[in-house]
Design a protein around this nucleic acid. Structure first.
Length: 82
DNA sequence: ATAATGACGTGAT
DNA sequence: AATCACGCCATTA
């Protein structure tokens, strides 16, 4: 389950959608993974730790008000921008 | 049950 | 390096 996988991502580390999909047993469900997260944003699942391949951040649910994925990742120490 | 969608990925231009 | 097009899968309408 993607949910479980993402939940097991340690702070300070990130995992690509492809990796999550692979770990979930679906090597080519990278897209579906993102889709699942988008509809299912659980507080128990740090979906902000899931980024695109190549280290690109990708999208997020919050591009609206709160903190962006980048902000959260920076808080955790992965993206040390600036 | 079928069609359309999207927080992706890779390869080709 | 940047952009375009195609493929793939699960969810949703």
């Amino acid at each position: 389950m993607v949910e479980k996988i993402v939940r097991s991502i340690p702070s300070g580390s990130v995992m690509t959608y492809g990796e999550v999909a692979l770990r979930a047993g679906h090597p080519a469900a990278s897209r579906a993974v993102g889709n699942i997260m988008s509809r299912n944003n659980d507080e128990t699942v740090p979906c902000h730790r899931v980024i695109r391949a190549g280290g690109k951040v990708g999208g997020y649910n919050g591009i609206r008000g709160g903190k962006s994925k980048i902000e959260l990742l920076r808080e955790e120490g992965y993206l040390l921008w600036i």
